[in-house]
Design a protein around this nucleic acid. Sequence first.
DNA 1: CGCATCCTTGACGAAGGTCAACATTCGTGG
DNA 2: CCACGAATGTTGACCTTCGTCAAGGATGCG
Lengths: 254, 254
Amino acid sequence: MPLACQAKITDTPTQISCLQCSINTICFPAGLDLDLRTELYNVLNHPPALERGEVLFRTGATMKGIYAIRSGAIKTYITDENGHEQVTGYYLPGELLGLGALHSGKHFQIAEALESTYLCQIPVEDLNRLSKDHPQIQEQLINLLSKQLHDHHKMVWHLGLKNATSRVAALLLNCSERCHDRGFSASEIKLNLSRQDISSHLGLAVETVCRIFGQLKRDKVIDFKGRQIDILNFDALNEYMGTKMVQKGKIPRI
Amino acid sequence: MPLACQAKITDTPTQISCLQCSINTICFPAGLDLDLRTELYNVLNHPPALERGEVLFRTGATMKGIYAIRSGAIKTYITDENGHEQVTGYYLPGELLGLGALHSGKHFQIAEALESTYLCQIPVEDLNRLSKDHPQIQEQLINLLSKQLHDHHKMVWHLGLKNATSRVAALLLNCSERCHDRGFSASEIKLNLSRQDISSHLGLAVETVCRIFGQLKRDKVIDFKGRQIDILNFDALNEYMGTKMVQKGKIPRI
DNA sequence: CGCATCCTTGACGAAGGTCAACATTCGTGG
DNA sequence: CCACGAATGTTGACCTTCGTCAAGGATGCG
């Protein structure tokens, strides 16, 4: 019986193996008998790849399943009446998507691929069916939900930071940490959000994000080329995120 | 067999009945047999009231159980090295606390009572034990977690809004909605956070929060006396939260 | 190659932070 | 019950940070 997905671990977040995946505890819980493994293998499916700009689900759509990202990246956002979008989340390989819709069965946000993205999906009906008979699976689901909740608490913390630089620093460190947790490099990260996406996520203007990136580069805290970011000085970044840097003239003009 | 808590529904969020409580589906799931009800009644306990300023749990503390607020209010916050605190959440009667700690067993934030607060608690070990035998309970827990996740997505959205007034409006509307969901008044809310707490939560200065409150009062969008807030014009508040209000001179000096 | 999209930088003004003074509320002890 | 002080809330003056507008550069795609 082959495992469902067997990608290799690489240095930059491209493809992820089941070992690093958020839902591997669901797909392949420890100490499971062969029958259940087989059944899981049968319900776990791989939708066709999403191309950049393609939408996985929209606001109000019925939840079809829970998704884990195998490779690529997804952003979630909401739009107001004027079509103006605000990014609410950014998901990396190995991470789960759309769990906030479990209780209502309806999605609240729009999920869009930022690049070619491969997913694993477990359809809700299969999940529900298997859950009924296997408390282990439910237990894992509870753990995953709790973990996500924890991550979101962190995000609320980061978004409540008072100045632009600390919010940018928090985003970079958060992304770095998540990459690291999945076995990728913590210092060389590909943040495939446009500057526009980043600014909308953090509640800033695009130009402010650019200027802060530029400043961090000049200060040799990070280096970047486009969306490929290299963190050079974690300590400095942590200080920027903390309260220390609320002093005068940290980001002078020119 | 008496039910565990039998408070009455009132107009302002003081005490909540089990009917409106988040965890009533856990305490008393529909179609449960008498044995399980009895067992639930036995594990559900009521810790002594917390007084204003008392701490329910701290960062790093072992999770003892899941808590629902019967009456009162709780804020959660984190502190940096300098002891500066940042509020990350605000919890009303009928709401759940500390679910983000389920996966690790350790709390990440500090939870502190904002006034005299009564709680219901289900100890983790009892929850785990009952969960093993009763998939219904686990299912409910999954629903609750998913609901919270959804709420936090909203919070991330609100905190990403670009200007101070819209963030304040979002907080007020969010609070109003949650009061309404629990059967309380949507327009007359007691937001028992200090201005300091609000500002720290929204990433603003205290003075800014005061000025925005003052402006909203002058514009007859809200009225307030201390922490008792009366929403007079929901449409206006919604517009403030949206993008419309990013025009010039909305908050002139005097 | 040419267009569209994204990124970057500058100049300027407005929103919001900081500092300071004062008002109000609340809790405590006389 | 009042008096006092501490904590909290409010307002004003001033200045920094950040948003806006505008222009130009880089990148990618057909």
